[in-house]
Structures are given as structure tokens and as C-alpha cells.
Amino acid sequence: MIPAPFKAVFNGYMTMAIEHGEIEKIAELSGIRISDEEIGQVTERIAEILQMVDQLQAVDTHNIEPMANPLDAIQRLRPDEVTEANRRDAFQAIAPAAENGLYLVPKVIE
């Protein structure tokens, strides 16, 4: 049940060859561990998605300005005023690890 105008999605676009190694790099950047058992399927699925989105390459977008915001609106500025009170206790009550007002993480080595 694929609507006709959208069939191109599945037509013969060349599979983007994406390798395990590349997925590992992307996973590293994403801060997500992928186990050895998962990596094969993850790679396959992502390759499918990349193949699907690859049809964009065929579109001529010469001189088209990218649109980051659907309304092409502009930024509003706020006055320089302190409006926030100290709510540390409320915020740190939900923290996994906090001590002496600090959030704790495994030792960072510079």
C-alpha cells in the first residue's frame, strides 16, 4: 500500500553503502553504545533509511535558500533581567547523583 507519487521512495536508488565502522563512529558521536550482536541489524536498518532519503539528491535545489523555520520568523530579544530564583534543592532532588550542591560524574581526566 504505497501511494503512487511516493513509489520513488522504493525505486532503484543505489543503496548507500554504510559500513559497520561508520555506524560505530556515528554511535560514538551519538553517545550510544551498540553491542556486537546489535550492530549488524542496526547497520542494515540505517542503510535502508539512508537509501530512502537518498532520493533527495536528484532534486535541483540550485539557488533555493534552506528553510530552518517554517514561518521564516526572526528572533525576539528579552530584556536583561534576572527572573530566576535559586531552585537548586528542587532540581537536585531528581538528580541521579548530587553532593554538596554539585552534580557528580565519574572522574573527568583532562
Partner: peptide, 19 residues
């Protein structure tokens, strides 16, 4: 992030990072 996110969320994060 491996344990906290489900499959689809991780998939989209990876695709987005790639893009």
C-alpha cells in the same frame, strides 16, 4: 543512552547524527 532509549529512538538519533 543504550539502556535508556528504545530501538526507534536510537535509530533516529543515529540517522540524525549521520545527516
Amino acid at each position: 543512552r543504550q539502556e535508556g532509549f528504545g530501538e526507534e529512538v536510537k535509530r533516529r538519533i543515529l540517522v540524525g547524527t549521520y545527516a
